[in-house]
Design a binder for these strands. Structure first.
Lengths: 195, 195
DNA sequence: ACCTGAACACCGTTCAAGT
DNA sequence: ACCTGAACACCGTTCAAGT
């Protein structure tokens, strides 16, 4: 009656495959990941992988999901809306900096930023409580998300650090950018209020 | 006395190589470019290329330069500083949309946005005339550049179009983002004035 | 059902031998 | 000086033959 009829190779679990792949990407970048190296790291025949994952693209997609799922428990605390926006921006940043190599690749792709997901919902909620008219919430949320996403890409790929030639350039640049965006939203909110 | 002693193969000019490579990238994306296909397109032996370009990275770097050099003649017209900032943003956008595949790759790399170049100078000049204190000009210029760069990446890779499910999503998103940034700058400028 | 060796169609790059 | 065939060290993926 026990369901343990067929002993499965623990190295060929989808979970084991993806976690090993993520470890490789974190250590050696996206170009350091190949199906053959992944198999070697698992101590497994390269061809066996294709019985458990469709192809390399599925592996990369899988580890991206793995990481973004780690952000499911994002929740904004109480406070003024600018502080809440700041919280979300820095949560997004923490996610990126935890896996810079992966993020550098994910931002380039077209399926990384998802409408679903707690980040998007939380952001739109904050914008509503800030007083942004409902008709502008979705579009503004999208624009804010891609702006911060692009900002994080330039931090992760070193552009920001190179443009601002200073210690802690990334911290300063990110803080300045977030302030700029919050000020931009504030203008829009108050202007709408005045009409 | 005429310098035309050795007839050089016109297909193996650095210029011909780069322009053909750019044509391939524009048509088939970065992944559609290989040294072997480039040689085939030129009607030339693949190995001959290595006598005129160092490697594939040099080719990609070369076509990136080729495109960005096309923006040398960027100049802001007269007007209020918000309109001037808008001009620069849209000039940057035109550059991106002219070669979306290349830009999608270039933004990912860490050496695309250059401190040198007319774009950077023009941007900093506008920020100065807007009344931003000299100490903040460089950093703000850098942040604005990477924000707009990231914005263009999401337009070029389709993220913006997917997040905003509407016709002309790219145009609307870009316009909204630029307004947001200009409002953010305006707040910073006027606040500084008031101190 | 799962594994796997061989094979296919590609890569970038080097290098010795040619002219 | 420039060209080029062969070769090396890689890829992702397929597939028939095994268990």
């Amino acid at each position: 009656m026990a369901g343990s009829a067929k002993p499965v190779d623990p190295r060929l679990t989808k979970d084991a495959i993806l976690r090993t792949a993520l470890r490789i990407v974190d250590a050696h970048g996206i170009d350091g990941l190949s199906m053959r190296k992944l198999a070697a790291e698992l101590g497994v025949n390269p061809m066996s992988l294709y019985h458990h994952v469709a192809n390399k693209a599925a592996v990369v997609n899988g580890i991206t999901r793995l990481v973004t799922d780690g952000a499911r428990d994002i929740a904004v605390g109480p406070g003024r809306w600018p502080d809440q926006l700041r919280q979300l921006a820095y949560a997004f940043r923490a996610l990126s900096l935890a896996h810079p190599h992966l993020m550098r690749h994910a931002f380039t792709g077209d399926d990384f930023i998802q409408r679903r997901g707690p980040m998007w919902q939380a952001l739109c909620d904050v914008l509503r409580t800030a007083g942004l008219p409902e008709a502008e919430v979705e579009q503004t949320g999208a624009v804010l998300t891609v702006l911060v996403g692009g900002l994080l890409l330039t931090e992760v790929n070193g552009t920001m650090r190179r443009l601002i030639g200073a210690d802690a350039a990334d911290d300063a640049g990110f803080a300045l950018a977030v302030d700029l965006l919050i000020n931009g939203i504030a203008t829009r909110v108050s202007r709408t209020d005045m009409i």
